[in-house]
Structures are given as C-alpha cells and as structure tokens.
Design a protein around this nucleic acid. Structure first.
Length: 562
RNA sequence: UCCCGGAUCGUCCAAUGGCAGGACUGCGGGUUCUGGCUCCGCCAAUCAAGGUUCGAAUCCUUGUCCGGGAUCCA
C-alpha cells in the first residue's frame, strides 16, 4: 500500500506546476482535457496521456474533458469517435457530461477571427501553396512578406466573408495571422488560421466550407472550456508561442497554459499511425485489434487488465526527455495484477499421454484444487483424475540434465493437487518418438502430500484424458525482433525486423474440464504456463485462448544461460 | 546551421545548493504442492571541461551528443 501511495503521489514537473498554481491562487481548481483527433485508433501512448489527464484531474479534485479535435473533415470520421470513447471507458475513465467537439466552437472561432481581422492581426492571402512555401523561407533564411499582407481591414473582412460563403475554390485563398515573416520560429511566419475545404464535416455537415487549423483552434477551444493546464506532447513545443499569441490577441477571460511532456515509446513495437497502418493494411497482423498491436484495442483483446495499464502509466512517470520504456515493465504490471486476481486452472499445451498402470481402470476421483493461492477467499474447485492423463511434453526427459526436477525414468514427481507418480516405462513409436509413459502412483500421497514426509522436487500440471476441454491456444511474442525497429541499418526498413514467430497457434491444447464454465471475458492462469483469456473468435464448438503473458520461468533462464 | 527542448544505473523515474534513491531488468540465495508468488542480497549512473560555493546532478560559461521544428495535418 505504501508503495502504491508513493507511486501515485510521486511528483513530476507537471504536478509541481499545478501545485504552485493552486497555492498561488492562480487557479482554484484544475481542468485538463484529452483532445484526440478522430482519425485513427488509440494506442498505449494515448493511454499514457489519458491516464495523465484524467489522473491529474482526479488527484486534484478537478475535471478532465474529452474533446474531439475535429477541425479537418478530410481525415476524420464518426467511426473513430465511437472507438475512442470505448477505449477510454475501458481504461476506466469517465468524462461525465464533459464531452466536447472543437467543431462546436466554429461559430465562436469565426467571430474571433473577424475580431482579429478588425484589430489588424489577420489578412486574407491569395498566394498559391507553392508561393506560401517559398515566401515562408527556411530555418536558416528569413521569409518574405506576402503581397497580400497589407490589404485593408475592410477588404479582408469582405474577402473572409466570401471565403465563408463559398465564393472561392479550395486553395484559392486562406486567412493568415499577421505576425512576423522574419521570425526565427518558422511557425510564427504568418501561419494559416482558416483554409477552404468544400467537404462536409461529420458533425457540422455542410454548414462550413472554411475550417480552422489546429493552431488557431486548439488554444481557443481550451479557453472556451476553461482548461487550466493543456497537456500535449513535445512536438508541439514549437507551437506554444503561437498558442500564446492567439490568446494574447483575443484576450479571452480564461487563459489556459500549454505544457509539453515526452510521448511514450515502447521497446519491440512501433507506435506511429503510419507504421501501424502498414502493419494492418499489408497483413503483418490481423487488424487493429490484433493482440500483438500496441493499440488499446489490441491490448484489450490480448487480455491486459486496464488496471495494469494504468499502473504502468503511473510507474513510467512523466518527463520532458525522450525515452523508450522497456516492455518488461508493462509485462511486470500485467503479471502483478493477474497474479492477485486470476483464477488458476490446469492446461496442457503440448500433451504427452501418461497411463498410471496401478490405478484402477474405471475409477475417477476428484481432487480439491486451490483457485488462487494469493486469495484464499476464492476457495477451491474439484478436478477429476483418472487412469490416463496428459502432461506437458516438456515436463518429461528421458535423459535429464542435473537440475531437471520434473519427470524422468525412475523419478518421482507430484501431480499438482493429486498423487506422486514415478515413471517406469517409455513407449516409443517406430521413429523413436516418445508417445506414451507408463507410471505408477502412490495411493498414500492422495491430495499431494506424503505421510512419510518424503520430498519431491517437482510438481507438474496434468489433465485427465477423459475429462478435458480441447482448446486452441494463440501464443504471442513481440512483433519485432529488435528493441527499436526504427533504428535500422542501411537499406532496411522496420518491416525487416518483423518477428516471424510472434504468433504460434496451438491446435490441440487440453484444458481442465472446469474451464468449460469460465466466463468469456475471464482472465485466468494455467498453472506453471502463463496467463490466458478467452478470445472473441471462440465459438460453441471451439474455445480459443490468447496467452496474455507467460509466467516468469527460472528453469528456462537456467537453460538459456548454458 | 537558425529557433526550441533535453542529457542521472542496461531501462524508466526521483533527488529543486547538503549522504545520488526507487522501480523494472539482470545475477546470487532462502522459501514453496506453480522452477509462479514472496523474502534476502548483489551488480549498476550524474555527457565533458572550466567557474561560483564551505558544499554542485542541481547555479554560471563553453563545448559535445540526442530530439523536435519550414502540411492550407494534428
């Protein structure tokens, strides 16, 4: 508990600013906002931002608005609005009545633009896109004033009116802020405020044919909503002077402050919209919700609990330096959450038949198995046992190395929650493959303990061959073979680092019969194997499971280090 | 190179002029009816050089490296 406290209360530079603003009386409370453009799916980087904005609002008893930044109808669609809201809700955040759209402010934004023109700080420019670029200059060279820069207020007002009324073609002209064409920050060289697009908007329909740019719309939207702290990622840093310039010219009552933080990068994946699009479109994954994708939809389908994602967001912190967080930390958060919450079952992914030769042919016993050792109140369940069982192929070795604690000729192991068994015969096929084991059990060890107190080093999982549910299991690994697929060597692209083994499908898994009753949304642990969840591809005929994450595996590590 | 940022264990985040600390990873060990969990221990960092100061990761100067910035995108 104390550790969670520390994590949740860890100060970062944004909290310092907020606390100072609260203390000084600049603000009596805070309002943040999450401002997605409805033009794509959310990924875990957005999740960081969502957790930050909603988390801050919660911590300081403020509010967090959800505002769709829908100023460009060319790229946006309602389809994304729905999926974004769904993702935020899944993460466990609630914007309550504070659902907004930048497009709702088009009237106010227009009125302000008129005012800015009247104040002499904006003009309608008829330069071609090529000339705009040419006249803007470069980072090294100054720009040149547009020939339309000194039109009269009256003329600008008339022209802007005509723009609004659809009397110009797309690209024919635009409204520009009159700032400084020789400004060292290129963004300040008379940026575009309004452009013409004869395209219907998914919310305002055909009402408008001029649309405000991000730079003109964002700060003002913040001001309209009384946002106090407007958090965005580092690439908007250069836009901040512009953000402030508009506020200074318009002088709204509310003065939001833009604060930038570093976006999240994760090892072994890519997060850019364009690259993810390639993965989906070219079939490297099976859609936006493929469990290998870093999208919120992918993570959800993979089975990551939202609480684990929030914990992760809290633990990675917030700072201004570019960073790449190890996927290990995310997986750690997932394991930690699932260890405490996931019901345990037994499941065999790669079955090897075992016949208990001294066990009565038709006897079926039921053993009590603990549902979750981390939570006693989860109780126990009955697991049927019979003469023939399946164990994991990897739990048997004919010629085992020294520290192998599992089944081997002449060796005794415990079948979890059942009996001790000893292997005395290996049955092979014509090619020498092990196809079956014959073992004997010790009736005295019923339930998994022995009256004589003798120790067995190994405990293995099993499934009764006459009481099981067949399952298909999808095992996932990272989508890329290298930590940073973008850090590519000569000539290669990120696609050259795709992990061809990122998905392995097990067709003949055997799960404990109790799995039949598991809820479709449940996450559970196959003991000694990993955490799994039921995939939506599941049908009445076939249960399909996704491996969320493996258990940590010390034996695997020992072998690797050899 | 013009503007704006940023440089702390392998990774992420702290330390706000006063003992560089936590988490993840890795390594070693204890415990265990999951080689899980848990517990104990270990490895491991202030970009560089000057300066200010009793004292610098922190302030100043210079340099180096990294990131971002010139869409009628956000």
């Amino acid at each position: 508990m104390s550790e969670e406290k520390v994590a949740g209360n860890a100060v970062n530079f944004i909290k310092s600013i907020i606390e100072s603003d609260l203390k000084s009386g600049k603000h009596s409370g805070i309002i943040t906002r999450f401002p997605p453009e409805p033009n794509g799916y959310l990924h875990i980087g957005h999740a960081k931002s969502i957790c930050l904005n909603f988390g801050l609002a919660k911590q300081y008893s403020g509010k967090c608005h959800l505002r769709f930044d829908d100023t460009n109808p060319e790229k946006e669609d309602v389809e994304y609005v729905e999926s974004i809201m769904n993702d935020i809700k899944w993460l466990g955040f609630d914007w309550e009545e504070n659902l907004f759209f930048a497009s709702s402010y088009f009237d106010q934004l227009y009125d302000w633009a008129v005012q800015i023109i009247k104040d002499g700080f904006a003009y309608v420019c008829h330069q071609s896109p090529e000339d705009v670029r040419k006249y803007r200059g470069t980072a090294k060279s100054k720009g040149i004033d547009s020939p339309f820069r000194n039109r009269s207020v009256k003329e600008n007002l008339e022209l802007f009116e005509k723009m609004k009324n659809g009397e110009f073609k797309e690209g024919e002209c635009m409204l520009r802020a009159k700032i400084d064409m020789s400004h060292p920050n290129v963004l300040m060289r008379d940026p575009v405020m309004y452009r013409i697009k004869h395209i219907p908007h998914h919310r305002t329909g055909n009402k408008w044919c001029i649309y405000p740019t991000y730079d003109y719309a964002h700060g003002q939207s913040d001001a309209i909503e009384n946002i106090t702290h407007s958090l965005c990622t580092l690439e908007f840093e250069a836009h901040r002077p512009l953000y402030e310039w508009f506020l200074e010219v318009i002088k709204p009552e509310s003065r939001p402050r833009q604060i930038e933080f570093a976006r999240l990068n994760l090892t072994y994946t890519v997060m850019s919209k364009r690259l993810m699009m390639t993965l989906v479109k070219d079939g490297y994954v099976n859609g936006w919700d493929d469990p290998r994708m870093p999208t919120v939809a992918g993570i959800r389908r993979r089975g990551y609990p939202p609480e684990a994602v929030k914990d992760f967001a809290e633990r990675i912190g917030v700072a201004k330096r570019d960073s790449t967080v190890s996927i290990d930390l995310l997986e750690h958060c997932v394991r930690e959450n699932l260890n405490k919450t996931a019901q345990r079952f037994m499941g065999v992914l790669d079955p090897l038949k075992v016949v208990i030769s001294n066990y009565p042919d038709d006897l079926v016993e039921e053993f009590d198995a603990i549902n979750n050792p981390e939570n006693e109140s989860d109780g126990k369940r009955k697991v049927p046992f019979s003469k023939t069982i399946y164990i994991e192929k990897s739990d048997f070795m004919e010629d085992p190395p020294k520290k192998f604690h599992r089944l081997a000729p002449g060796k005794e192991v415990r079948l979890r929650s059942a009996y001790y068994i000893t292997c005395n015969e290996i049955v092979k096929d014509g090619e020498g493959n092990i196809v079956e084991l014959h073992c004997t059990y010790d009736p005295q060890t019923r339930g998994g303990g022995s009256p004589d107190g003798r120790k067995v080093k190994g405990t293995i999982h099993w499934v009764s061959a006459t009481h099981y549910v067949p399952v298909e299991v999808r095992l996932y690994d990272t989508l890329f073979t290298v930590e940073n697929p973008l850090d590519r060597e000569g000539g290669k692209t990120f696609l050259d680092y795709i992990n061809n083994e990122s998905l392995k499908v097990i067709k003949n898994g055997c799960a404990e019969i109790n799995l039949k009753n598991v809820e479709p949304s449940a996450r559970f642990q196959f003991e000694r194997v990993g955490y799994f969840c039921v995939d939506p591809d599941t049908t009445k005929e076939k249960i399909i499971l996704n491996r969320i994450v493996t258990l940590k595996d010390k034996w695997n590590r020992i072998q690797k280090n050899k």
